[in-house]
């Protein structure tokens, strides 16, 4: 095909075993994969965008409830969770870095650390949920938290549980993806010339971190 001929003329590279037939060269393939991932991340941002919209809507309506309820969330825990996710993002970029400079062992270690911190985050958050369950700080009709009686308090907890719940679901999916990537990296699938899945998995993980960076001040530090 014309595209292939052109790719050879430019002498960019020989047929990489991972090159799919319909792409011109590896570079185009990676560009396509990345652009596809960015578009997917855009849909994720908008998915959360709906919840951010609901958040701002009800925060405008019930500012008092937001202030009071936020004080009853576990702030030190929120801080811990934030550090957990930031660090996991850091180990994620390091994992890709080590793959690119050819250190597979450290790369696997970093991926494992990232996944562990991901599931650790879920554990921490599960603990918070458990406490809120005990207190009765629950959404909508389940609300029976005695300490906060401000108008709209159940709405704060509805928004809180939906936002953190959706985020936790993403953390869980990301964690599973990371475990798969760890396995594939350990098997030796990725090296300096081909690390696209690792790259894309990393992008997803950073997005999860990015969402939390906004959730933390919005929910815990009102």
């Amino acid at each position: 095909m014309a595209e292939h001929v052109e790719a050879h003329e430019h002498g960019h590279e020989e047929h990489h075993p991972r090159l799919q037939h319909h792409f011109q060269d590896m570079r185009t393939q990676q560009h396509a994969a990345r652009l596809g991932m960015w578009l997917f991340l855009a849909t994720e941002i908008l998915l959360f965008g709906g919840l951010f919209c609901a958040y701002s809507y009800y925060r405008t309506l019930f500012p008092e409830a937001w202030k009071e309820c936020s004080k009853h969330l576990n702030r030190p825990f929120g801080l811990l969770e934030t550090f957990d996710l930031i660090t996991s993002s850091f180990t994620m970029v390091l994992a890709i870095h080590f793959t690119r400079i050819g250190n597979r062992k450290l790369s696997v270690l970093m991926l494992l650390a990232t996944a562990t911190m991901g599931f650790g985050f879920l554990g921490l958050h599960g603990y918070e949920y458990y406490h809120e369950w005990l207190e009765g700080a629950l959404p909508g009709k389940y609300y029976h938290f005695e300490e906060v009686t401000a108008t709209g308090a159940p709405m704060f907890y509805a928004v809180y549980f939906l936002m953190t719940g959706l985020h936790s679901a993403h953390v869980f999916i990301g964690g599973v993806v990371l475990l798969v990537l760890t396995y594939l990296t350990a098997k030796g699938n990725y090296d300096a010339s081909y690390d696209h899945p690792l790259d894309l998995g990393g992008l997803y993980w950073h997005l999860v971190d990015l969402i939390w960076i906004f959730l933390f001040p919005l929910l815990y530090l009102v």
Binding site: Y57, P139, M155
Partner: peptide, 21 residues
């Protein structure tokens, strides 16, 4: 399914928000 009240006026929710979204 669960009645979180996010669009339910009885719990402070606003059906108009549903329509916006």
């Amino acid at each position: 399914a669960f009645g979180f009240g996010i669009f339910d006026p009885a719990h402070g929710g606003d059906p108009v928000l549903f329509q916006h979204m």
